[in-house]
């Protein structure tokens, strides 16, 4: 068979093999992070710094986005519910949409683009400027000192951000639904309180956000550590972090929703 015809298959084979290889490398990398996490928890200052960088510095985008998403939900929800005369269910609709689905997923996507990309770029640049090699030559393991604190900082920050996203969304829904449109505040809150179940709805949302945080943090540190040590390499790795995180979050969301609800 002429080589020109074979070429697409060769390329396909290459990408499949390298994809599987990277997956294996990422798994081993996760194993190394978990093995070397001791220092992260023995030295809270390291962890606090990363929670600050991943979590506190992401607050603005998370809070503002949450507010707007809640406001839009209230507009759409009121429009549909009022057709059936069920406006008092607006609070339930907003709260359930946010805690079960939109909170974890949208906060995850925002977290990946704000904090995940920053983590990848930082680790990638540290690698490109030989800071990681210098650390290893000083007998300090870069996975333990640089990677593990950033990983755990992300894992801890993400569920907190998702919770704040949902809380701001509920506030946004209240502002539009109750303050602006005039839905009865008593039924808005009481229906929400009686219909939203802590275990079934809120805990399920928390589980989702923990899983997304784990996935995004792993992708971000892995892409940074595995990036090519050049300017283009770091830029490609940063893009890959955002794209892969988005796909993984949406894929995992489907799987988790199928199992949890």
């Amino acid at each position: 068979m002429p080589e020109a015809l074979l070429r697409p298959f060769i390329r396909l084979g290459h990408s499949v093999v390298s994809g599987i290889w990277r997956l294996g490398f990422a798994s081993r990398f996760l194993g190394a992070i978990l093995m070397m996490s001791g220092a992260t928890f023995r030295r809270p200052a390291l962890l606090m710094r990363e929670i600050y960088f991943s979590g506190v510095l992401s607050l603005i985008i998370i809070l503002v986005s949450g507010l707007f998403v809640g406001m839009v939900l209230a507009l759409h929800g009121y429009d549909t519910l009022s057709r059936y005369g069920s406006e008092e269910w607006l609070g339930v609709l907003v709260a359930l949409s946010l805690t079960r689905e939109l909170g974890p997923v949208l906060a995850g996507l925002l977290f990946a683009s704000r904090a995940g990309s920053a983590i990848t770029a930082e680790i990638g640049l540290m690698k490109a400027t030989e800071q990681l090699s210098a650390m290893a030559m000083m007998a300090v393991n870069p996975v333990a000192r640089v990677v593990a604190p950033r990983f755990w900082g992300g894992v801890i920050a993400m569920p907190l951000l998702a919770a704040m996203f949902s809380a701001m969304g509920v506030l946004g829904g209240y502002l539009v639904g109750v303050v602006q449109i005039g839905v009865d505040p008593g039924s808005f809150w009481s229906q929400m309180q009686s219909q939203v179940d802590v275990e079934r709805d809120i805990l399920a949302g928390v589980i989702k956000s923990v899983v997304f945080g784990f996935a995004v943090a792993l992708i971000a540190v892995f892409e940074g550590y595995d990036s090519e040590a050049t300017a283009e390499g770091v830029s490609r790795a940063t893009t890959r972090t955002v794209v892969t995180s988005a796909l993984v979050i949406l894929g995992l969301d489907f799987i988790l929703t199928a199992f949890l609800f």
Partner: peptide, 26 residues
């Protein structure tokens, strides 16, 4: 490696730390 020191070509200083903290790092 604790008995070795290596000076990298462009220094490889930790850019998020001051000069003092870089030297204090090891």
């Amino acid at each position: 490696r604790r008995r070795m020191g290596m000076l990298f070509q462009f220094g490889a200083l930790f850019t998020d730390m001051s000069v003092y903290d870089n030297v204090a790092f090891p």
